[in-house]
Amino acid sequence: MSDQEAKPSTEDLGDKKEGEYIKLKVIGQDSSEIHFKVKMTTHLKKLKESYCQRQGVPMNSLRFLFEGQRIADNHTPKELGMEEEDVIEVYQEQTGGHSTV
Rank of each mutant, 00 (worst) to 15 (best):
M1P: 06
M1Y: 07
M1E: 07
S2K: 11
S2H: 13
S2I: 13
D3N: 10
Q4R: 12
Q4I: 12
Q4S: 14
A6S: 11
K7F: 08
P8N: 06
S9F: 08
S9H: 10
S9N: 15
E11H: 10
L13S: 13
D15Y: 08
K16F: 11
K16H: 14
K17W: 11
E18N: 12
E18C: 05
E18K: 13
G19I: 12
Y21C: 13
Y21T: 14
Y21P: 11
I22M: 12
I27A: 02
Q29M: 05
D30F: 04
S31Q: 07
S31F: 15
S31N: 12
S31E: 06
S32L: 05
I34C: 04
I34M: 09
I34N: 03
H35E: 07
H35L: 09
H35T: 15
F36C: 03
K37M: 05
K37C: 01
V38T: 13
K39R: 11
K39L: 07
K39D: 02
K39M: 00
T41G: 09
T41Y: 00
H43L: 12
H43G: 11
L44F: 14
K46F: 08
K48T: 00
K48R: 01
S50M: 13
S50K: 05
S50F: 15
R54S: 05
R54P: 00
Q55A: 10
G56W: 03
G56T: 04
M59D: 15
M59S: 07
S61I: 04
S61D: 05
L62K: 06
L65D: 01
L65Q: 01
L65S: 01
F66E: 04
F66K: 01
R70F: 05
R70D: 09
R70S: 15
R70E: 15
I71R: 03
P77M: 01
L80N: 00
G81D: 06
G81L: 12
M82C: 04
E84A: 09
E84N: 06
I88N: 02
I88T: 02
Q94D: 05
T95C: 10
T95N: 06
H98A: 09
H98N: 09
H98K: 08
H98R: 10
S99A: 12
S99K: 08
S99P: 08
T100G: 09
T100R: 10
V101L: 10
V101P: 06
